[in-house]
């Protein structure tokens, strides 16, 4: 029983962290119509930024400033924001598919830089040397995981409330106005690209926050954490959950992550001995079918966008 709870806490922690990134993406896509194909880069910037600023000194790369945890976390978020700002200035006027591939390129370049620039990021070996806050004073790892889970959920809740307030504000209305009809918004004297850039930067900073929490939880980050798979996972969560709906995004995050992991568990449990070596491949087929099936069943997402009346 304790084992099950321990696992579920662990699962829910990772799902909550991913859900935060989904919410960031929902601000960009669901509310503003920005097709960000580079989620992994902004998530990764938060993760790398945190360990760079908050970790202990390492021989092979820069960093090791051992900053106070919240400061390091904010530092990572600001790094994501900075990258998003530069990328945004260059690409924000691009439309959908073009923006997607441009930002995707940014993510590939980010992963590549982290993999090759050993002086900066430890190279392919990744970055370690981060002490999880309070881990030493909490002797029982189970208790630590529960506390960290609560912390992640609180952050998720905070981000959710912030975004709900934001999209109901005049600014949120403006975002949707630009998404629906840019020219009309322009005719009313609004500057669409400026507004888009703001949404892009804020959304990316939320992804950076998720990345920071992720690196805190694992006390390690490597280029393998920022591969394009991550971008795909976050997107699938949003689309299946329901883009434009924050609750849908969170639901999607938990569901897709559950499908992703539970499929492996079920196969290892129930597949016959002969098939055990092929379960990895079968698992991918199952995940693919679940995603396709959900989209066939409810293409608009489980919780579609609701009409929001801004105050």
């Amino acid at each position: 029983m304790i084992g099950l709870i321990s696992y579920l806490v662990f699962f829910a922690t990772v799902a909550s962290i991913l859900a935060i990134a989904v919410l960031g993406l929902n601000l960009q896509w669901g509310n503003t119509g920005l097709f960000n194909g580079g989620v992994a880069a902004f998530f990764g910037a938060g993760a790398y930024g945190l360990i760079l600023l908050g970790g202990t000194e390492q021989a092979d790369h820069i960093g090791g400033f051992e900053l106070f945890y919240p400061v390091a976390l904010v530092g990572g978020i600001l790094l994501s924001g900075l990258i998003a700002w530069v990328v945004g200035i260059l690409t924000i006027r691009l439309r959908r598919d073009y923006l997607a591939i441009a930002t995707f390129g940014v993510a590939v370049a980010f992963e590549n830089l982290m993999r090759n620039a050993e002086w900066l990021s430890g190279g392919a070996k990744g970055m370690r040397g981060f002490e999880r806050p309070f881990e030493d004073s909490i002797a029982d790892p189970f208790v630590f995981n529960i506390i960290f889970f609560c912390f992640s959920v609180l952050v998720l809740l905070g981000v959710y409330l912030f975004l709900e307030k934001l999209i109901r504000s005049p600014f949120g209305r403006l975002l949707r106005a630009i998404r629906e009809d840019e020219v009309a918004a322009q005719s009313l004297g609004k500057a669409p690209n400026q507004v888009r850039l703001t949404a892009f930067v804020v959304g990316s900073m939320i992804m950076g926050l998720a990345g920071g929490l992720y690196a805190t939880f694992y006390a390690f980050v490597s280029p393998q954490d920022v591969l394009p798979t991550l971008t795909f996972q976050i997107w699938a969560m949003l689309i299946v959950g329901g883009s434009g709906n924050n609750q849908g995004g969170i639901l999607g995050a938990f569901l897709i992550w559950a499908a992703w992991t539970a499929s492996g568990w079920m196969l290892s449990k129930f597949a016959p001995v002969e098939a055990q070596l092929y379960t990895g491949t079968l698992q991918y087929i199952m995940i693919g079918m679940i995603i396709v099936g959900m989209l066939l069943w409810r293409p608009q997402g489980l919780l579609p966008e609701k009409l929001i009346v801004s105050q």
């Binding site: 393998q224 954490d225 591969l227 568990w265 698992q283």
Partner: peptide, 9 residues
């Protein structure tokens, strides 16, 4: 046996 998919998560 479980597959890692070479994905740390």
């Amino acid at each position: 046996l479980r597959d890692t998919q070479v994905d740390p998560k």
